[in-house]
Nucleic acid binder design. Structure first.
Lengths: 345, 345
DNA sequence: TTGTATGCGTTATCAC
DNA sequence: GTGATAACGCATACAA
């Protein structure tokens, strides 16, 4: 591997000059610059980032750690991939042009993953953490060592920078629509995993919104794990009852799609017999028939804002931490009973 | 930031011993090990990866570079995201546990991106390149500097390791099905961007398969850019003709979905009036109504195999390069005219 | 404008 | 078993 020493020797200058040329310093005469540049090109020299980083005390890398739910490939493809992938693209977009690169790690909660994140902190200047990858205490400890910003974490966090979608606004609007517009009064809720903060918040928001309504009642709460399969399972629970609820509100789109498919398999028409809603507004929610009424989360915005925040925190470590709530919005389509999709021949 | 020196001083040993403990060397007595470990824990010491890498001449990072098509957010979300994201997850899965991390960069072909990749080569031990991010010649030059494996690149490449899906097998099976099973004879093709090798191969495979059929003819070829929007545009071209083709074969699922939605918007029934097929078997292809008949590409397999290959090439630089074709397979669902989807009440 | 010398935090090669 | 000490490749303070 060729180094600055090689370049310096061949170009007949010192390593300091080579370094200056690399960094684009203006304290180099025009023709030595050109000479050095020519040698760099001829030798195919690329500066070693480790050595640069060691000298600069800066790695120009930020890490992104996220959850990878489910063990097998199918699950991975269908569950939380979309959310984290959008975050990845958003973060990469912010970093691009700043000279920083994005280092990825996925895993599932546990000792091993925690270890991995901890040692990852030696490879990066800052960490973007997506969802609750570890206990709040551990996370704060990690954050005391390295700049860290959390995406979709606990909104109750006080010591860390957190960017969260505000489940409340969208869920309120959605329930208001179901109760006000459609006059549904017996609603059921398909909840997410109990250890996911979003799942909890959506459930609470749902329950409060329904209770605040005139005379609506919560028919049943079924717990899933955010996967399409668990949505299907929830639907089977519904189908085994003597009567269906008027509407099934799901804590995310994947489960809603699972519910939809299972109901349709059983010959139950949506939304005629059961209205259905999701949460997240993932791409497929527009493709199912009927199109899914859901709540849109500002996912890319979360990623973008979090990445920007991390960069400024790296530059200015002592900034006070804060929690940023970005509003979600109801997206009314057909599955709640509004209009008709093209599929209703 | 605490260093080995700090740990050594506090623990009353030399930095060499600290290093041995970190690396888990067996040449350390039990109780010094424990003492050092305790200090490491107390001080929250994490070894600096740059310094390690500099000393080891190894970065334990591999880079992944891919194309980010389209400028705006919508496009990014809907076009090629799925493919590259699956590759990312697959590669990360292979790397996990090997001690390597994944460094991501996206961009679109051009001088700037090429520059970025070149300097990226100073940060990693090897490079995973997804699709044709730059001219073949440039890529080979880069590969001469650093271990490099291409995913979904030119199958005609001879100097580089390439992993490609074999578009031929799946397209042949698909066309054979359309001609043999359904007896369609007037087919149209919605092609992808001309600069994408996959797009070219699929088109050629299609044309050859049709010409090889008994008396089928290619009605029209319309060029899109792999986006859903370009599929809609293609459908409008079709709708403006005096008569529709019997079947529209699309070079990918996104475009097929665009075609489908536009046809249905115009009141044309699929597959009754026009049969439709896609390519890739992305998740949404199962959600549209009718479900899309398509060709499945072994995406994760590509990512996994490529990552493994890169690791072995890093260990053994002089291995001869080779092109690996992984077969694609036809996935027969409803949009070609087979059976009926649940939506056909 | 250019060169010299030193530090950056680890690992590894020696001695002890 | 353990400890000095020399790399590793680059950047920069200081000299010239």
């Amino acid at each position: 591997m060729t180094t600055v020493y090689d370049v310096a020797r061949v170009a007949g200058v010192s390593t300091a000059t080579v370094s200056r040329v690399i960094r684009g310093s203006s304290l180099v005469s025009q023709d030595t610059r050109e000479r050095v540049l020519a040698v760099i090109d001829a030798l195919g020299f690329v500066p070693d980032a480790n050595a640069q980083g060691l000298s600069n005390r800066r790695k120009n890398v930020i890490g992104l750690a996220g959850l990878e739910r489910g063990g097998n490939e199918i699950d991975v493809e269908h569950s939380s991939v979309l959310f984290i992938d959008q975050i990845v693209h958003a973060a990469e977009g912010v970093l691009r042009g700043t000279g920083f690169s994005l280092l990825l790690t996925f895993g599932s909660r546990g000792e091993e993953f925690e270890q991995r994140l901890w040692s990852l902190s030696g490879k990066v200047d800052g960490l973007l953490v997506v969802e609750e990858v570890m206990a709040a205490g551990e996370l704060r400890e990690l954050a005391s060592r390295i700049p860290l910003v959390v995406i979709a974490g606990r909104r109750t966090e006080t010591a860390l920078d957190v960017f969260v979608a505000d489940n409340l606004t969208g869920m309120n609007a959605l329930v208001a629509h179901l109760l006000g517009q459609h006059r549904y009064s017996r609603l059921c809720f398909v909840a997410g995993p109990k250890d996911a903060p979003d799942a909890r918040e959506r459930q609470i928001a749902f329950e409060e919104a329904v209770l605040a309504g005139p005379d609506a009642v919560i028919d049943q709460v079924i717990h899933g794990d955010f996967s399409e399969g668990s949505g299907s399972a929830a639907a089977r629970v519904l189908l085994s009852r003597t009567s269906l609820p008027e509407a099934a509100v799901c804590a995310n789109d994947q489960m809603a799609i699972g519910v939809l498919r299972e109901l349709q398999r059983a010959g139950v028409r949506v939304p005629q017999e059961v209205a259905l809603t999701g949460f997240d507004d993932i791409y497929p929610s527009r493709l199912v028939d009927p199109q899914l009424t859901t709540v849109s989360q500002p996912v890319r915005e979360l990623g973008t804002r979090a990445a920007q925040r991390l960069l400024t925190r790296i530059a200015e470590r002592e900034m006070p931490a804060s929690v940023q709530l970005l509003p979600t919005t109801a997206v009314i389509r057909a599955s709640c009973g509004c209009g008709h999709s093209h599929g209703d021949h």
